[in-house]
Structure formats: C-alpha cells, structure tokens
Amino acid sequence: MYSDRVMDHFTNPRNVGEIPDANGVGEVGNARCGDIMKMWIKVENNVITDIKFKTFGCGAAIATSSMITEMAKGKTLEEAEQITNQQVAEALEGLPPVKMHCSNLAADALTAAIADYKKRAAGTSA
C-alpha cells in the first residue's frame, strides 16, 4: 500500500532525534488519534542549518517526518514555510488516500517549529 519511497524513509528515517540547542521546537497531533510529530530546528542567519524529528505514528507519519527534514535543511525560513503537506506527499510518490488527512502533518510540525523560533527571536530582541 505504501510507495517504495515511503518504505525507504520509513525503514531508514533521516534526521531522527533531538537537537539539544535547538532554537525552535514544534509539536503537532495528539496521541488520541495516533500521530504525534515533534520537530527541532536550528536556525542560523535565517537558514535552517539543522533539523531533527521524533514521531509516534504509523508508517506514513514517520516517512513524512523524515522527508520534510530533507526538504527543509539548508532552506531559508521563508522557503521552508512554503512547504506544504501536499508537497511532502508528492515527494514520497504519494500516500494512500486514508493517510492524506490524518498522518500527513509534517509541514504543520515544521511551521510550528518556525513559529516557535520567531517567537523566541522576537522575545530576545525585545
């Protein structure tokens, strides 16, 4: 039911873990529905220099988390904010229809991490 690319990211997920000195952290989903994604980003000069994730969820949830870390690394915040859940699914050569709404949250997790970074940055400069 999953594409080869999904299975590749599921079996060899990229950038798993936490960043101890992250300056942005985002978490979406809830355990009740069976998917939680947490994303850590390290931003330097407006560029995402490092990104890591931890995910509780199904194959699609793990693969989308892994995929987006590859897509976002090295991007400016503005570029990273443009990444959509749909684009993540396309980069994985598609997801089963039932997974499109519930497990395809990686872009939301990244957006939440970027928002956290911006909030912290605003707090520091104030």
């Binding site: 999953y2 599921f10 509780f56």
Partner: peptide, 14 residues
C-alpha cells in the same frame, strides 16, 4: 506503550 501499531506491523512484515 509509546509506539503505534501500524509501524510495528510494517517492521514485522519486513
């Protein structure tokens, strides 16, 4: 605890 069933099944299937 702390893990989800489908990802467990996929790993077992592998």
């Amino acid at each position: 605890e702390y893990i989800e069933g489908e990802s467990l099944l996929l790993n077992l299937d592998l």
